[in-house]
């Protein structure tokens, strides 16, 4: 089997007295969409931020394309072709749409202009609002901006942390279609979702995280909803 693009091996993350992740191992292969499901507080965001280099694991390792990630130095991880679309979008509200997009790009000059043109082609609404402060966009538009910002650097892999959070179902459909479309362009995706049904429908494989550890994993089509519901509603340990 070929080397996975992301390999998380036995990762434990503690903050002070709190253990957010316990011995978590997951793998993501090139070209896949992997869903990470689980109730809130399961440690999904911590897992994404650990992969992106924001947190240092207390134990275990994270590898990106065969080499260990630089924990504690998210900028280095980002430059190796990984982007995190964070929970709550985290766009730069007071800056314009175009400035937000420029933040995502490692280039300037002509290369930057090409990237901007492509972004506006993909998201015409952002083109219309390029001079507007990003904080004034609607929730769905902000999410598109966050994704467009991530795409500026033509990354190999994008981690999405709760992309559907606070969005209307129609918008969520659009976002998920976009993620699936990007797979066909060769972008690998990891999608953290609470909304299990939708996430299973759009992903290739899934991991179920609860109380900081992996409780189940498999091909998305084969994951039984009753199992997942059990973990959500506490009828199953």
């Amino acid at each position: 089997m070929s080397e996975p693009l992301i390999r998380v091996a036995g990762v434990t993350v503690r903050y002070g007295a709190v253990t957010a992740l316990r011995d978590v191992s997951i793998e993501v292969n090139p070209g896949e969409i992997v869903a990470v499901l689980g109730p809130n507080g399961a440690g999904k965001s911590t897992l994404m931020r650990t992969i992106a280099g924001v947190h240092k694991p207390t134990a275990g390792q994270v590898h990106l394309a065969g080499a260990p990630v630089e924990s504690g130095s998210p900028e280095r991880v980002a430059r190796r072709g990984l982007r995190l679309v964070p929970e709550g979008r985290q766009i730069f509200g007071p800056m314009t749409v175009e400035e937000n997009l420029r933040m995502g790009s490692p280039d300037s000059g002509a290369a930057l202009h090409d990237q901007l043109d492509r972004a506006y082609e993909r998201f015409p609404i952002l083109g219309e609002r390029r001079r507007q402060a990003a904080g004034t966009l609607s929730g769905g538009e902000q999410q598109m901006l966050a994704i467009a910002r991530a795409l500026m650097a033509a990354p190999r892999v994008i981690l999405y942390d709760e992309p559907s959070l606070g969005l209307a179902p129609r918008i969520v459909d659009q976002i998920f279609e976009l993620i699936v479309g990007l797979r066909d362009e060769g972008v690998t995706s990891v999608v953290v979702e609470q909304n299990a049904r939708r996430a299973l429908a759009m992903s290739d494989r899934a991991y179920l995280l609860a109380a900081g550890s992996v409780k189940a994993s498999g091909r998305s089509a084969e994951m039984a909803e009753s199992d997942i519901a059990g973990h959500y509603f506490g009828t199953q340990r």
Binding site: P169, R198, A201, I228, A229
Partner: peptide, 17 residues
């Protein structure tokens, strides 16, 4: 609450397709 369909939908997502 455990039996409420709306609650299940809120947590697990709307039935897809």
């Amino acid at each position: 609450i455990a039996q409420n369909a709306q609650v299940r939908a809120a947590y697990l997502g709307d039935p897809v397709g």
